[in-house]
């Protein structure tokens, strides 16, 4: 939609947008500058905003994270490489599995007609799985995985995150497949390709952009997940958000440290947002307007 717009409206719009941009970006800015402050700069009676002018930045908080810390601050984030590896594997593989399973189901929902269950009801059932409060699964997961001795393992996180993201992925991809022209697949099937061939050789390659967006979504949400990470891991499979959350008490938050650790955890989603933000935004709102 585009209409000619009055000057006043335009100015008002810009004011609203600038205000919103400030609201959105200031917290990020604050995190970044806090991560390069010393303890004295953080505990100063008045907050300071401008590096080099109001306070002298330091990289000490980051040194603490990566194990070159001072005194007891050594390895402030523990085994940061292992934490990163855990978070990454859990997010990457769960996103991958969710996309594989999800693409198949989404394709089925957009190409076949299910008489007894009705397609819309199946789709609704999938999305209703997203309604399930995660806390309801915490205890049974804890008991079931505990019984088979699988607590504190990355594969369990992968399995759980796959289930968590599957409904969303199916929903996104169903829309995507519905928008793909059926005719090409039909033509190939007339030429003797099986349904599987049509899916793998025709539909999937066409759907790659959608698959990527769904994958990135699933990756980010798994990367950010906290409750299952908190309750199902102890040490070997501990993820970054769980380690970060450990800063919450005892001698109170060491903000300079926490800001640096927070940035480390924010980094992959931030990179994804910067690189492919535009597609993500489209994917995000894709289904909403159908």
């Amino acid at each position: 939609m585009s209409l000619s717009i009055g000057r006043g409206t335009k100015i008002l719009s810009y004011i609203v947008l600038i205000a919103w941009a400030f609201f959105t970006l200031f917290p990020l800015y604050w995190t970044i500058i806090t991560s390069v402050k010393t303890q004295s700069a953080v505990s100063a009676p008045n907050p300071t905003f401008i590096p080099w002018v109001q306070f002298e930045p330091t990289l000490q908080p980051f040194r603490d994270i990566f194990g070159e810390g001072e005194g007891y601050g050594v390895s402030g984030m523990g085994d940061v490489a292992r934490l990163f590896r855990n978070s990454f594997s859990a997010a990457f593989f769960s996103a991958l599995f969710a996309v594989v399973l999800g693409a198949m189901a989404a394709y089925a929902l957009s190409r076949f007609r299910y008489r007894r269950w009705r397609n819309n009801d199946i789709a609704f059932w999938f999305i209703s799985q997203r309604m399930m409060p995660p806390i309801a699964l915490v205890v049974p997961y804890f008991l079931l995985f505990g019984r088979v001795g699988l607590l504190d393992s990355v594969p369990v996180l992968i399995a759980v995150y796959t289930a968590m993201n599957l409904p969303l992925v199916i929903w996104l991809l169903r829309d995507y497949f519905q928008d793909l022209p059926i005719e090409i697949e039909e033509a190939s099937m007339v030429d003797g390709t099986s349904r599987y061939g049509a899916f793998f050789r025709v539909a999937l390659p066409l759907a790659v952009p959608g698959l990527v967006v769904a994958f990135l979504f699933a990756f980010v949400f798994a990367w950010n997940e906290f409750l299952f990470g908190l309750t199902l891991t102890i040490d070997q499979a501990k993820t970054l958000p769980v380690q970060l959350a450990g800063n919450v008490t005892l001698r109170g938050p060491r903000y300079w440290d926490i800001a640096a650790q927070g940035l480390v955890v924010m980094l992959p989603p931030l990179i994804i947002a910067l690189l492919v933000g535009r597609y993500i935004v489209r994917g995000l709102t894709l289904g909403a307007v159908k």
Binding site: G73, N247, L250, R251
Partner: peptide, 12 residues
């Protein structure tokens, strides 16, 4: 516990 105050001496 997480954080330097209790686990720090162990690591140190």
């Amino acid at each position: 516990q997480t954080g330097p105050f209790i686990s720090g001496p162990i690591k140190f």
